[in-house]
């Protein structure tokens, strides 16, 4: 054990999260204990976390206002400080936190907006893989499609909600008013980055479910069957067309 007056990085680090803490050996230039000087680091660390979270969740911040967002953020970052140097990807688990943190419950759609923004952030930094072109997809023999499986772009994610999350997200990120959004509508969203811009598309709930099936390795026959079982009106061509148009398909694997 080091002597009690010697510098400890773990003490220094732990003290940053305790309002009253002043680890031993931290002094001013004259050698006197320096709690206010040390608190500059406390403030720097917490504020940098809150700012990083605000940059990752701009729509959430707009929807609840800066003060409420910062209060939520302070609680989240205190419970979940970053475990990686990659602050560009900080904020994992914010939606789950919002679900469980009582003061956030007054904005019930907020966790699903956070899910869109998390997917957006991951898509923004995801690997550069070009979607399959319409020509390349058209060149796949139609009889091979049924047993084919699909690799989606690494940016692809779906979010399903009982709230109008696409329109709320769109209003918040485009300077619109959420008063125009019909609260009784439930929406699903597809996040995808076919080139360098991230897109969020409103999609039917069923399509979101089927995209998840594709991501989990289902064949297109299985997807078509699941679609028809869920909705007699289901139009596979429309569903497949959406995947092509949004640039969600990285590769089609012919399995026969």
């Amino acid at each position: 054990m080091p002597p009690s007056n010697s510098f400890s990085q773990s003490q220094f680090a732990e003290g940053l999260f305790q309002p009253e803490a002043l680890p031993t050996g931290i002094v001013d230039p004259a050698g006197a204990p320096a709690p206010k000087r040390y608190s500059v680091y406390k403030n720097n660390v917490i504020v940098s976390y809150i700012e990083a979270l605000g940059a990752a969740y701009p729509a959430c911040k707009t929807l609840v206002g800066e003060d409420f967002f910062n209060a939520l953020a302070r609680e989240f970052v205190t419970q979940n400080p970053p475990n990686s140097q990659l602050m560009i990807l900080f904020g994992e688990g914010f939606d789950a936190f919002l679900n469980s943190f009582e003061p956030a419950q007054q904005v019930p759609f907020l966790p699903d907006i956070a899910k869109i923004e998390r997917a957006w952030r991951i898509a923004y930094h995801s690997a550069d893989i070009a979607p399959m072109t319409g020509e390349a997809i058209a060149a796949v023999p139609p009889e091979a499609l049924g047993d084919a499986t699909i690799t989606l772009l690494p940016s692809v994610a779906t979010i399903s909600s009982q709230f109008p999350i696409y329109n709320l997200w769109f209003a918040a990120t485009s300077g619109g008013s959420i008063d125009q959004v019909d609260p009784s509508v439930s929406e699903s969203a597809l996040v995808v980055r076919p080139a360098f811009d991230v897109f969020v598309h409103p999609i039917p709930h069923l399509f979101a479910e089927l995209i998840e099936k594709i991501a989990n390795g289902a064949t297109l026959n299985e997807v078509a069957q699941a679609g028809a079982e869920n909705d007699v009106q289901f139009d596979f061509a429309q569903f497949f067309g959406l995947l092509i148009q949004t640039g969600a398909i990285a590769e089609i694997h012919q399995n026969n």
């Binding site: 990085q9 773990s10 680090a13 940053l16 400080p81 475990n83 990686s84 140097q85």
Partner: peptide, 26 residues
């Protein structure tokens, strides 16, 4: 400077440039 201190176990990134005493050990 330092910004994390227990990398091997459970990294917590402090996102700041923290100071250290100037000793033979450091």
């Amino acid at each position: 400077a330092w910004s994390s201190h227990n990398e091997a176990k459970n990294l917590m990134f402090l996102n700041d440039l923290l100071p250290l005493p100037y000793t033979e050990e450091t």
